[in-house]
Structure formats: C-alpha cells, structure tokens
C-alpha cells in the first residue's frame, strides 16, 4: 500500500514560545504535521480542539494545507472526549500528535488516553514510517540520543512524535492567511484539574551538587563548603601526546560515552 494513500489526521494545539510565551504553532505538533505532510501530502487532515479564532493556528495552515477542523471549545474544556468522538468517525488510519502540549498542564497524557479510548495501539516517539504493507506499518521509533528502534504495528494506530521527528517546514504567510478554519460545535466537558491545581511561574531548579555520603559532621562540613567543580579545568601542558590521550580517555570512560 503506497504511503500517500494513507488516511492521516494530525492533532495540533496552540503552543507558546519558550522565551516570550507568545502563542505560536507548537514545535512538536508542527513536526507531526510535517511527518503527516511527508506521508500523505495534501490529503493530510489536521484537527484542533479549542478556539477557532486563535490566529496562531494559522501557522499550521501556512505549512501548505487548505483547511483544518476546529472542534470549538472554551480553553478550560477537556479536549479528550471531543477528539475521540471525532476520530472514531473520521476513518483515519494514522493519527499523529505531539508528545506534550506547550501550554496548560502538558502532561502528555492525551495520546495515551486517546489510544486507550479508541482501542488503538500507540507508538511513542515516531520518527519515520518506513512502509505499510497489508495494513501493517513498519516504523522507526526514536530513542534518546539519536538511537532508533524498528517496530511493526497494525493500522489504524496512534503515534506521538517528539523532537526526533523531522523539523517542521516553514509556515508561509500567504497560505496561512487563505486557509480555512472549519469550526465544529461539540459538547463541552469541563476539565476539573484547574479547580484544585494552580499554575505558577516555573521556579528555577538549581543544579544538584554532588551527593555526599558524609558520616561525620566534619565530612559534611567539608562537603558543604567544597568548591563547585568546573571552576577551571585541568590543563595539561608540555605532556607527551600519549599522556594527553590517556587523560582524555580516562575522562571519556568516566563519562561513559565510549560504547
């Protein structure tokens, strides 16, 4: 089955720039759209649950899509029921999402819950769809530090993408402006989380000092007042290349990067 006949829906959300907090297309969602566009081309459908007036959504259309569906919801609503209702009827074979939202809770639960509700398998960290034959897809899953694992999964399935997926193409102003946001009314289910939880500006977390197993007060004192490491590196001057290489090798093995 050629990849470009796949029926793919990408779920998108409104992101926030990490520095300014300004609304934008979410990085991972945009990568999911990119992956979808590479697989299905213009047949890709994209879906959002939220406010159809949100301008930042147009950035997804600017990637070369004529329209997107928006399930109209107020911001504090739970997107899950609306999305699963829609997806159940949409006839998609592959649903792509980002790993976690850039705004709100960002628990990253949505793909898991959707998969559970739809009864579909979920591939986490999809990097590439290699082939689809007889309704079975062979895909590459991204592992940390650029590693990959090959998986086989039956259609239809859900996949989340992380930053290992291909970088999203540029969003162009013209198509973004011309694209259509098709709003659909859905029943609203309130999300109860924010009745008990509060969002607050992120507190910076200091880097943990080396854990000291001190047995005596003196040792603890010594540890507590120890110089932070890295205040100035070790410089090997006038050493033989072999001695230098030995020192480097020691650091590499200590860090465990030699595999």
């Amino acid at each position: 089955m050629p990849l470009n006949t796949l029926n793919i829906i990408t779920l998108v959300s409104v992101g926030a720039h990490p520095m300014s907090g300004r609304a934008r297309r979410a990085e991972q969602d945009a990568r999911a759209v990119e992956l979808g566009l590479r697989l299905a081309g213009e047949r890709l459908r994209i879906l959002h649950a939220g406010d159809p007036e949100e301008e930042a959504l147009r950035a997804y259309l600017g990637m070369g899509l004529a329209e997107m569906t928006v399930l109209q919801q107020p911001p504090q609503a739970d997107a899950l029921p609306a999305l699963s209702d829609y997806l159940r009827q949409a006839g998609a074979q592959l649903v792509l999402t980002g790993t976690q939202a850039e705004t709100g809770e960002g628990s990253g639960m949505l793909p898991y819950l959707l998969a559970e509700q739809l009864g579909w398998p979920l591939v986490v960290g999809l990097a590439e769809v290699e082939s689809v034959t007889d309704g079975v897809a062979q895909v590459l899953q991204a592992l940390p530090r650029g590693q990959r694992r090959r998986l086989q999964v039956r259609l239809p399935f859900l996949a989340s993408v992380d930053n290992a997926a291909p970088t999203a193409r540029q969003s162009a102003f013209g198509p973004a402006r011309r694209g259509q946001l098709q709003a659909q009314a859905v029943s609203v289910v309130e999300d109860v989380l924010f009745s008990e939880a509060q969002l607050q500006p992120a507190r910076p977390r200091p880097k943990r000092l080396k854990v000291i197993k001190a047995k005596t007060g003196a040792e603890r004192m010594k540890a507590a007042t120890a110089k932070a490491s890295g205040g100035g590196g070790q410089v090997l001057k006038d050493v033989s290349p072999e001695a230098g290489a030995e020192a480097i090798l020691k650091l590499l093995t200590d860090e465990g990067v030699l595999r």
Binding site: G233, Q234, V239, A245, I248, L249, L251
Partner: peptide, 24 residues
C-alpha cells in the same frame, strides 16, 4: 576554549588524536 574546558591538552592535535585513536 581552554578557559571553558574541563580538560585541556596543549599540543599538536594530530599527534594527540593519533595517540587517542590507538588508546581507544
């Protein structure tokens, strides 16, 4: 770069790399 580095080896890079390749 030396000021930033945790470990610096001053010398001819070719010789050091060669020694490193052998060690590794």
């Amino acid at each position: 770069m030396i000021k930033r580095a945790d470990l610096s080896v001053i010398g001819d890079s070719a010789a050091i790399l060669q020694a490193l390749i052998e060690r590794v």
